[in-house]
Write a protein that binds this DNA or RNA. Structure first.
Lengths: 202, 202
DNA sequence: TCAATATCGGATCGTTCAATCCGAAACTTG
DNA sequence: CAAGTTTCGGATTGAACGATCCGATATTGA
């Protein structure tokens, strides 16, 4: 099963990590191919040979992000813990990750592709992150439903309303972090959201 | 006081309105001068003569937005109403405005300048919207403080935490709206946030 | 009526963009 | 070893970018 032809001289993981960090810091549009070439050490030919286009590279970089730092949101789908604890870990974990100074602040998925350029060049890039946001939302909603079934939340709870509250706050974390809001304040805010969860149960 | 020289042939308000709509829809970077020229009907010379640069135009367009649709957040500073009602109007009013289909969805201030390009070309543009976000946050915090003083909120309430919760949700509305979340779900979410406000009072 | 001033439309500037082309190099397969 | 295949570095492409220049035009103040 060895591939025919000259083998790649670069490590795919290393390249994706570098591209991810660049897109994370600057967004899709503001990141130029020249910067990507410098950060990855690859030539245009290698980049296009491996990923096809700037969008293709972005897509792979987002997948790399989701499998890495972005995986913190996966806890919300873990049915081994109570819905409330799942949401708690989702929020506090996201805050910890997004305020970690060892990489760009905020969330690549939350910050990218929120505006649509009709020209379309960015359309596919938007699609990738929007799909992940939709997936997060779906999983949060499932968690809320679990909370109702388990009795943690009152049966009259507005499922989509609570989902939108949690997801909205989650999405808002990124902008706050970029603007300099401290991790302490955000953790306290997450606790306030969770207090709301408890209030809905009464 | 009449200005010397050939008078402007365009209506400043009309031009700013057109530019605002374009920046609102597409963001700062994705909006090109060619698009701005077409939307405003002005030549490059007129645009640069009046605003100095693309950034200068963006700055004026943001001010136009803040004085127009963006003014919905001003209610939170109105001390004539109770802090709870002020927050309620802030959230519900923002949702109404951002889901209004007579103009681009979401909030220009919340969606712009969340990523920083080191090249600096966008730096000043970022500054304008970031300043407005900071102002909103400050006013929300003042409202929370008023709530504590008035007794609506418990005196042990974590001011910055509640502020971050409200502001975070407010910022998250834009992305949700762009992704297609309904006004109904967002209003229900706002009610959930307000239920939290009540819970903090006990 | 004439100099000074500011804006106009339109052409154009140099730069940067994403993307492609090309010949050399490195590997597998027969 | 030779044929086939893929990737490599580096030069280069046409298009689009923001910004500027220019001659013409319209106004004010003397």
């Amino acid at each position: 099963m060895s591939p025919v032809g000259r083998p790649r001289a670069f490590d795919m993981e290393v390249v994706l990590e570098a591209a991810m960090l660049l897109f994370w810091e600057q967004g899709y549009e503001a990141t130029s191919l020249a910067q990507l070439r410098e950060a990855t050490g690859l030539s245009s030919a290698s980049l296009y040979g491996a990923f096809g286009s700037k969008e293709g590279l972005f897509e792979k970089a987002v997948e790399h992000y989701i499998a890495g730092p972005g995986s913190v949101t996966d806890v919300v789908a873990d049915e081994a813990m109570s819905p409330r604890e799942a949401v708690a870990r989702l929020l506090h974990g996201s805050i910890d990750m997004q305020t970690d100074t060892s990489h760009p602040r905020g969330c690549l998925v939350a910050l990218s592709g929120t505006v649509r350029a009709p020209g379309g060049g960015e359309a596919a890039a938007r699609k990738v992150v929007a799909a992940r946001r939709a997936a997060d939302r779906t999983r949060i909603r499932a968690c809320v439903v679990r909370g109702i079934v388990s009795g943690e939340l009152h049966e009259d709870t507005d499922m989509d309303g609570v989902t939108s509250m949690i997801h909205g706050f989650l999405l808002g974390i990124s902008t706050q972090v970029r603007d300099g809001t401290s991790a302490r304040d955000l953790h306290a805010a997450a606790d306030a959201v969770l207090a709301n969860w408890d209030a809905q149960g009464r």
